[in-house]
Design a protein around this nucleic acid. Sequence first.
DNA 1: GTACACAAATTTGTATACAATGATGTGCTC
DNA 2: GAGCACATCATTGTATACAAATTTGTGTAC
Lengths: 238, 238
Amino acid sequence: MSEHVPNAPKPETSQAETVASELTLAIHQHRVLPGTKLGEDDLAEIYGVSRTIIRAALQSLAHHQLVEIRRNRGAFVAQPSIREAHEVFEARVLLEPGVARRAAERTKPDDLALLQRHIQDEHAALASGDRGAALHLSGLFHIEIARIADHETLAGFVEILIARSSLIIALYWRRESALCEKHAHHALLEALRSGDGVAAEELMHSHLVDLHSALDLRERPKPARSLKEALTAPDTGL
Amino acid sequence: MSEHVPNAPKPETSQAETVASELTLAIHQHRVLPGTKLGEDDLAEIYGVSRTIIRAALQSLAHHQLVEIRRNRGAFVAQPSIREAHEVFEARVLLEPGVARRAAERTKPDDLALLQRHIQDEHAALASGDRGAALHLSGLFHIEIARIADHETLAGFVEILIARSSLIIALYWRRESALCEKHAHHALLEALRSGDGVAAEELMHSHLVDLHSALDLRERPKPARSLKEALTAPDTGL
DNA sequence: GTACACAAATTTGTATACAATGATGTGCTC
DNA sequence: GAGCACATCATTGTATACAAATTTGTGTAC
């Protein structure tokens, strides 16, 4: 039958999904930055698979708007515009508070333990200076809440929005403001623990508004990095 | 080998996108029903392209949850469960009223004309007995409103939800209730014309609640059709 | 020295070949 | 005749080969 072994000789998940997951993780953790070109041959060699697999993975990421595929040009890590950044956080403000309320009404003990660990891990990552990992875990916290809400459709949307948020934070995060989500997440956890849906809804709302306002979304060209793209656009004046 | 597409001297859009669009349309119009197997070789021959293209198109539809890909088994038109059906309409009730309000605040004269034509076409299709085409146009009406709202992120979600709604209607539509959306759509159009966001929001809300309640979502096995799948599952008792 | 034009090299787009997995059919055992 | 084992077939999964397009490099004209 099917025993859940990590390095199984018989992959239950397709190779394309594996590559897509790894790439997604790398983008979430800001190991590859927006604008980076993702050449098919390079990736094929890195992951030891053929371009067929890489292509499928890249298409998957493109559907999640994590990469942009330009015909005959290749795949690049997406660079959300200021407008897109606003859209994403507006959508999150619209969706996630309701999801949090739903989650508060359905939280089980195991869920609380998992969320608690997420917060711990996030804190540990921050303490060790790994901002990328902390950011990733911070996103996972929100995704976990969506999962607890037990609404796959909304959870899928939330997942997409959080993935794009990671790109937006990479591009527009205001350096001086600390990435201190510990308090907000802890308060949310407590609201979930007590089953207080209204509190969870409000906490999530203010948390997201905070995040949105912590971005520097004034008019400026996107910091297109790497290659000549960084040089064909005017400097940000930093 | 390419004599299928009439006028495509220089394809600006990739062949995979073309195939995906055609398949999506066919599903929206209920020309292929939920549960239908979409064999790669068959599709490759039909559209006159290689399996590579077909595969990319099917993956695209799978991302939109219009088809389900089972490893080593192939692609099948998705059969949303009752639970998924509820989820989809819950999500639509959550998202679309706000989108309609936004749209009312941004409607331009050209948009009104376009919506008017959609309603006309839908009515004409219904009169000629082409329920599939009418259903498709009905969905396009909602998508058009999302486009007018000028929020690409939300519009993308709405598009996905409407695509899935088409499958849900194919599976669970209550036969006796007429597919009479003309009044609701016309009322919405008028609200948009007068720029009354609150009215548009409320009209959209009640319209969606109506649609949801017009489905027969009582417990029953999914009508898996075609091939032996229809025989391995208990009959719907119809 | 700059700008344009052309050629080489790299990279993506598509088709096809082969391998692997699941489905089907046949024959043997009991 | 029922049930299982194995061979055969069909279909999907993956790799590779080739075509098309873009980018890079070089040479020449002015």
